[in-house]
Amino acid sequence: MEITFKILRFDPDKDKKPYYRKYTVKVEPGMTVLDGLNEIKWRQDGTLSYRRSCRSAICGSCAMTINGVNRLACNTQILLLKRKTIVVEPLRRFPVIKDLIVDMDDFFEKIAIIKPYLIANSPAGPRERFQSPEDRKLLDEAVICILCGACTSSCPSYWYNKNYLGPASLFKAYRFIFDSRDEGTEERLRIISDRDGLWRCHSIFNCVEACPKSLNPTYAIAELKKKIVTTKL
């Protein structure tokens, strides 16, 4: 089946402004959007640029906007989209470097702000710290986040205020604040309750819809809000 890929192209070194370019790809069942992009790059137009690596939805390289929704190109099957034309654009609100490659520096800086590492000053002893399966279960979703940026890029609060930490950063904060081994809750709660922190989340749920790993950052942010309300800072 022939499918049209309509891709937003932009090379600031050559182009005055972004433009759409159409490519036709012969699609077999099972082919993913990444397979389609590869087909274009390898056989039609080598100048097309995008990030990709694992092609199994774990490295987080290939998040992009596909028919208006943020997804990973690698685990999105073309035929399941049920459209003759697939519109592919770079992640919204992140500065475009070239074609589908966006600048994620600000995204990763916002992850770093919340101190994304275990803070545990009590001596650990020679063996592992114990953690009950129930306590570990609280982290099941948060530790799966692949930092692809699909959630933050989909968040209207982030569109309007680039200083907002965004769902990925807050999800990372949740991952440590709800880790029974961690002792950094207070300092992290102070960081995320800042004016550009979690109160900017208005439970729009775009991040939940956008997450290619079917995770729920909005729920985590709601839990964090509860935690702040019940913690004396």
Binding site: Y117, L118, R129, Q131, P133, R136, F176, D179
Partner: peptide
């Protein structure tokens, strides 16, 4: 584990 790896338990 001490670094924070969330191993299953």
């Amino acid at each position: 584990e001490h670094m924070g790896v969330p191993f299953s338990r």
